[in-house]
Amino acid sequence: MIIFLCLALMLSLSTAEEITVAAASNLQFALEEVKNNFTQETQWGVKTVYGSTGKLAAQIKSGAPFDIFVAASTAEPESLYTNGLTNGAPRIFTYGLLVLWTLQDADLSEGMAVLKNPRFKKIALPDPKLAPYGKAAVTALQKEGLYEVLKTKLIFGDNITQTAQYIVSGNADIGFNAKSIVLSGPMQGKGHWVEVDSTLYTPIRQGVVQLKYGAEQHPEASKRFLEYLFSKNAGEIFKKYGYRL
């Protein structure tokens, strides 16, 4: 009897559905914790694919087999919804925060004004055409009257991850990134960072949608994962990584 139950359990685990979640790069550490908890609670597996929100949206429009799209904005999910590629309108599950970050021994207490210091010759940020955090950084620079002054120093990463690599490797002297990245385990304690005044950029509303593919191929598992993002457990993880709910 015990052997039979063990075999039945092994069979159920081996045949459990696995969904694929396309997610913005700023979520790479927080979402890994969320998905692991989800799998422990439900036995459904979750494969994550990270990239810039813009590039992931383009892949979805080209037919990529993703079940859920977890974006760094609501604009791209809304566009997918308008084009009939989602099962419902996007929902905001969290708000992201922008930081200024350097590995140099620098005092960042004056905020973005520090960027005028000639020691900072290369300033990294995500590509504003692809990444909402990059768009937020450009908006903040413009509102502070710094964009035209500094634009020749700007270098662009495809996404949050590549931008972080520029900063950590020293290819950039300083840069803009997501608060969730500087609070992640691998990055904690590296360099100095300060939050960018959130009144200087449009709130980074991070939206999620169940895609048509997920609704058709893995309806229950993908819907449960979407709902799990709004659970108390997931919320605590997001807050730990600096997101606002």
Rank of each mutant, 00 (worst) to 15 (best):
Y166I: 00
M112R: 09
R119P: 07
A178I: 05
E144P: 07
V114N: 09
T139N: 08
P126N: 11
L125V: 07
K116N: 15
K151P: 00
T152F: 04
R119I: 13
N177F: 06
A172G: 00
I167L: 00
Y166E: 11
Q142S: 12
K122R: 15
N177H: 11
Y133R: 04
V114D: 06
A113H: 15
A113Y: 14
G145Q: 10
L141Y: 06
K122N: 13
T161Q: 14
A131E: 14
K143V: 04
K121C: 05
A137K: 00
A131T: 13
L130N: 11
P126H: 12
F120W: 14
G145V: 07
D158C: 00
G145F: 07
K121I: 05
A178H: 03
P126R: 08
K129T: 11
N159I: 08
K135N: 08
L141I: 01
Q142M: 14
K151D: 00
L125D: 03
M112I: 15
L146E: 11
K116C: 11
S169A: 09
G134H: 01
S169Y: 13
Q142P: 05
K153E: 08
N177P: 05
G145P: 04
I174F: 04
F120M: 13
G111V: 12
I123N: 03
K116I: 14
S169V: 05
D158T: 08
M112T: 10
S169E: 15
D173G: 11
Q165K: 13
L146N: 05
N171G: 04
N159H: 12
R119E: 15
A140D: 02
G170R: 10
V114I: 14
F156S: 06
N117D: 15
A131N: 14
L130F: 12
E144F: 06
K129C: 04
G175Y: 02
K143I: 03
L154D: 03
Y147Q: 11
I123S: 06
V138G: 00
K122H: 14
P118E: 15
F176D: 05
K129G: 11
D127N: 14
V149M: 09
I167A: 01
L150H: 08
Y133N: 12
A140C: 09
V168F: 03
S169D: 15
L154P: 00
R119D: 15
A178K: 00
N177Y: 06
Y147L: 13
A172R: 01
F156G: 03
K121V: 07
I123F: 11
L125Y: 11
A178V: 02
V138A: 02
K135E: 13
Q165P: 03
F120R: 15
K151C: 02
A140S: 13
A113S: 15
I160G: 01
A131R: 02
A140V: 05
T152V: 07
K121P: 07
L146Q: 03
E148M: 07
I123H: 08
I123M: 12
G134C: 04
S169L: 06
A131K: 01
L115I: 09
F120A: 12
A131H: 10
L130D: 13
Q165D: 14
Y147A: 09
A164Y: 01
V114F: 10
E148S: 08
Y133V: 07
A131W: 09
K135Q: 12
V114W: 10
D127I: 04
T152E: 12
L141R: 01
I167E: 03
F176S: 02
Y133T: 12
Y166H: 10
P128C: 04
